[in-house]
């Protein structure tokens, strides 16, 4: 239990990475790192596909600086997300080479995406008390 709090619609309740949500509640976006072979995972996982060890992961805060690789403005949504359109979905890459698929903050305008703007992955509290993350502009300085 625990993961049902993640995302506008959650399809998963039980997972070994449920603490991810607890960290998110504390304002932290965490990855996992295999203590055996050093491989980093984001999204996090507890089983290492590289060295096949299980439950030997440590939680590690990510370097929170992202650049958009590609995006789309979605005018069409799956059932349950209709009220959100239009929304921007994007793939972003972090300064340490991790990738994320997520939404952009509603405050970001499409024109801004043409530049080399930097973003941070930030926890967002939804009206019903659930929690998710989105990319928000990274303030310079």
């Amino acid at each position: 239990m625990g993961f049902e709090k993640f995302g506008k619609i959650s399809y998963i309740r039980e997972t070994k990475v449920a603490p991810f949500v607890d960290y998110l509640e504390q304002g932290k976006v965490m990855a996992t790192r295999c203590r055996s072979c050093g491989k980093m995972y984001f999204p996090p996982r507890m089983d290492c596909e590289q060295c096949m060890t299980s439950d030997n992961m440590e939680w590690k805060e990510i370097v929170n600086e992202w650049k958009i690789l590609t995006y789309t403005v979605s005018e069409f949504a799956p059932t349950g997300f209709e009220d959100d359109v239009p929304y921007i979905l994007a793939i972003a890459e972090s300064a340490e080479g991790l990738r994320v698929f997520t939404r952009l903050s509603k405050d970001v305008k499409e024109e801004q995406l043409q530049s080399d703007m930097k973003f941070k992955l930030a926890p967002v509290r939804l009206p019903d008390g659930k929690i998710t993350y989105e990319l928000q502009p990274l303030e310079e300085g």
Partner: peptide
């Protein structure tokens, strides 16, 4: 449309409202 939403990874992709057109749109862009 409900089923289409679950055509992506239901843990890390579907909670953001990914659709088939949106997925291919990421490639197109």
């Amino acid at each position: 449309q409900e089923r289409m939403g679950r055509g992506a990874d239901i843990m890390w992709d579907s909670p953001f409202g990914l659709t088939m057109p949106a997925g291919y749109a990421l490639y197109a862009r």
